[in-house]
Design a protein around this nucleic acid. Structure first.
Lengths: 102, 102
DNA sequence: AATTTTCTTGACATAATTTGTCAAATATAA
DNA sequence: TTATATTTGACAAATTATGTCAAGAAAATT
C-alpha cells in the first residue's frame, strides 16, 4: 500500500520537478520535503493542500489519504483499532447532526 | 451523546469520590481532573486507563470511547470525515496484516 | 573519472502545544 | 456563617512540531 509520501515523490518525479522547486512553492526547505516524501517527517493539512495543487492531485483525495494514514498509524497498534473506527463513525455522525456546536 | 469526561464525572460522583481523591490516585492535580471531566483539557491513554481502574470501567471500553472521541473531534469539521474513516479502516487492516513493521 | 547537480542526513534553533502547579475565586454543603 | 469541594486563570516546564543550514552521499552529466 502506497503512502502519501510515496505518491508525492512518484508524481513529482514523473512531472520532472526537483525537490527545490516544489519546496520553494511550498515555502519550506527542500530538506523537509525530502523527509516528508520518505515518511521521516510529519506534515500538515496546509502543506498537503499546496502539494495537491502543484502536483495536480485531487485535493480531497489527497487529504483523505493523508488524514486516514495519520489515524491508521496512531491506532494500528491498538487491539481495539476496529472498534475505535466504528465508534468514531457514530460520533462523527452525531457531531455533524447539528445537535452539537464544536 | 455522553462524552468520556461526562461518564467519568458521573461515575466518580456516584461512587462518592472527590476530585482530590481520584486525582491523587492518578498523580495529577485535581484542577486537571476537573478540566478533564468538563472537556476543557485533553488527556491521554495512561490517565484513561488509571481512571478505568479506579472508577471500575472496562478498560477497553473506556479506551475505545476515549480514542474514538479524540478522532471524531479531529475530523468532524472535514467534509470528508466519513471517507477518512473508511480509508483508515483499510489502512489499519493492511498495517495489521504483518506485511508492515511500524 | 571528474564535475555538476540533486538529494539526504543530522545538528541545531524556534515556535507551538501539552502537561503540570498553584492559589485565589466561586460554588456547594453542613 | 463556616467548612469543604470545585473551578478558574496565570504561570512554568516538558514535549512535540516546524524550520534552517551546511556538509556528506548519491545520481546525472560532461
Amino acid at each position: 500500500m502506497e503512502t502519501v509520501g510515496q505518491k508525492i515523490r512518484a508524481k513529482r518525479e514523473s512531472m520532472g520537478l526537483l525537490l527545490r522547486q516544489v519546496a520553494s512553492y511550498l515555502n519550506i526547505d527542500q530538506a523537509i520535503l525530502s523527509k516528508i516524501e520518505r515518511n521521516e517527517r510529519k506534515t500538515n493539512k496546509d502543506i498537503i493542500l499546496k502539494l495537491a495543487e502543484v502536483l495536480e492531485f485531487d485535493k480531497e483525495d489527497l487529504l483523505v489519504q493523508f488524514i486516514s494514514e495519520k489515524i491508521a498509524y496512531e491506532i494500528a497498534n491498538e487491539d481495539c483499532a476496529d472498534k475505535v473506527l466504528k465508534a468514531a463513525e457514530q460520533k462523527v455522525k452525531y457531531l455533524k447532526s447539528n445537535l452539537v456546536k464544536i
